[in-house]
Design a protein around this nucleic acid. Sequence first.
DNA 1: AGCAGAAATTATCTTTTGTTAACGTGATTT
DNA 2: AAATCACGTTAACAAAAGATAATTTCTGCT
Lengths: 198, 198
Amino acid sequence: MGISIEVLQHLLQQLNGVPPADMAPLFAATRHVKLEAGETYIREGDTTRKLAYLEQGIIRAYAVRNNGEEATLFLRWEGQFIASHDAIIRQQPARFIYRALEDTVLLEINYDQLDQLLKEHPRMEPLRNYFLQKMLAEALDTIEAFVTLSPEERYLQLLDSRADIVNRVPDKYIASMLGVTPVSLSRIRKRIHSRGRK
Amino acid sequence: MGISIEVLQHLLQQLNGVPPADMAPLFAATRHVKLEAGETYIREGDTTRKLAYLEQGIIRAYAVRNNGEEATLFLRWEGQFIASHDAIIRQQPARFIYRALEDTVLLEINYDQLDQLLKEHPRMEPLRNYFLQKMLAEALDTIEAFVTLSPEERYLQLLDSRADIVNRVPDKYIASMLGVTPVSLSRIRKRIHSRGRK
DNA sequence: AGCAGAAATTATCTTTTGTTAACGTGATTT
DNA sequence: AAATCACGTTAACAAAAGATAATTTCTGCT
């Protein structure tokens, strides 16, 4: 089924006691976007400033390297926010590509519109803080994993915390997110299994 | 010498046209903190919510692993912001330690005070957005480097962009920030030099 | 200047990862 | 049903990194 819009509404209410009435103009500015599996949401060079809440599905953000290889930066799934970072944070064309791995439903808002809205309704600023902080916390967790854990440990951690996501996503994307090649991830899995059997 | 407070003031003015007069209460709530080289700014378990602007010096944030080893998450230097992430973002005791690598001068504000201030002066919200976005952008860059570059490439990139910082910081901290051991960084350096000579 | 401790390098050996290519397997298409 | 394609696994070898310890170099301090 996925996570309904009510969850988001509930979340926002909790944030800083923003009363539901105040949120009407916000939701009025949003729209639902449906992506098919494999469809691109944001492409390299895009300058549109989008912020979206994932109601259903998985989106993969990846960079294309000089040699043509793709490197997955992160995955986002239902209940998380996704934003065109470069455009929003740096006023710069997107360096990354955002593509749906499954059929995906987003609740999207144009960031410039949101900006305007927050100027008129400063009471809702906690919303912006909320997703910025959430994305920052996730990013710092990722960095922590890179400096404190081996690839194998990172994979085990991911399995532990998000086994459902790991099973929904092709291994090659998991591998590049962990900073290793698919071949290496395959060996890691083999090692884990052979140890588990003993 | 370091970067003076005027730079910060100037920065804030540019942010969203916050008039200087509005900033008086903000600066009234700040205080200068001086740290000696080696002094700890935030220790593991701390719950104080601090946000600081680095006027001079370098601070290292690191985690202590189960085996007692330290893993450097990041370095921050003059002109950057530093915040007790766990306390601010997650309302959670700090998992990381922040320690000055050199004599350091901070312009510090208590985050709860800032929160209060921003409620009274919503015009200054862009300040909060600014440092959140800046920290997020940096974190995403770090993640990008981890998934797209080898340790050697990450080191070269760091040398390229921040040679001054690399030279001010012991190699072992640089190494753990890059996700490798000091021994390995030493070999990387050797490889680079030997290639450079040819 | 000389000493002590920390930091960096080097050496040796083991483990892991990268690279390339071959092989199986399951899904999709025609 | 056959062919195709993408994905994961396996193999073989090269390159890099981890672990440990010895050694050298650097730094701070008295």
